[in-house]
Design a binder for these strands. Structure first.
Length: 189
DNA sequence: GTTTAGATCAACT
DNA sequence: GTTGATCTAAACG
């Protein structure tokens, strides 16, 4: 299969523009779509249909009153997507602080909810073409970072697959939190 | 059956 | 104090 995890690694170190703020992506999670129970695309519905569509479009979903941003990566038959979990603000600090309030600089876009808030991403941006220079889009790679992998944060299902990728030793990366109801950790094999 | 808005609470800062 | 691919309930088709 086309490896979703490769696409996830590929996004690390790239720029993400969001409504006047630019972030360097430092943490992502891969969602294997049709073959991943933790993915919204695991069951095909009108909502998840966007993940079965062309790649490089934005999928936004609500969680805990916040939003989370995903990049649809394709291929279309697999419905895979990559969740953008954290980034470092490299441009538009003023606007980011305005949206986030007084927080430490490294915390401006740490965590999916904070990142979407700092970049001003909401459900209104659902389906945005991320390759066009519209309010939300992907920029070029600014570095080739050293990448570390581990299990995904806060997922109940499939909690042991190492599909979370982040830039090593980056302060904007959030800590690992296992979901309370996820089964006991299984030894990697 | 599916989607969305709010709530909840353990883990993190 | 803050956060979140969870959880439940109500609205929708």
């Amino acid at each position: 299969m086309t490896d979703v995890t490769e696409r996830a690694r590929d996004l690390l170190g790239r720029l993400l523009h969001g409504h006047g703020v630019v972030a360097r992506i430092t943490e992502v999670e891969a969602y294997g779509g049709i073959e991943d129970p933790a993915s919204h695309a695991f069951t095909r519905t009108p909502r998840s249909e966007i993940m079965y569509g062309p790649p490089w479009r934005l999928y936004v979903y609500r969680i805990h009153g916040h939003h989370a941003a995903n990049v649809v990566t394709g291929p279309t038959e697999q419905a895979a997507a990559v969740l953008i979990r954290a980034g470092e603000i490299v441009e538009g600090h003023e606007l980011a602080y305005e949206r986030r309030g007084a927080v430490a600089e490294h915390a401006l876009a740490r965590g999916p909810g904070n990142l979407t808030k700092a970049l001003g991403i909401t459900s209104a941006d659902l389906g945005t073409e991320l390759l066009d220079p519209v309010p939300v889009f992907l920029g070029e790679r600014v570095e080739t970072p050293r990448i570390v992998a581990g299990p995904r944060v806060g997922v109940r299902l499939n909690a042991d697959v190492p599909w979370r990728f982040w830039v090593e030793d980056d302060p904007t990366v959030s800590a690992y939190r296992r979901h309370p109801k996820a089964g006991a950790a299984q030894p990697s094999r």
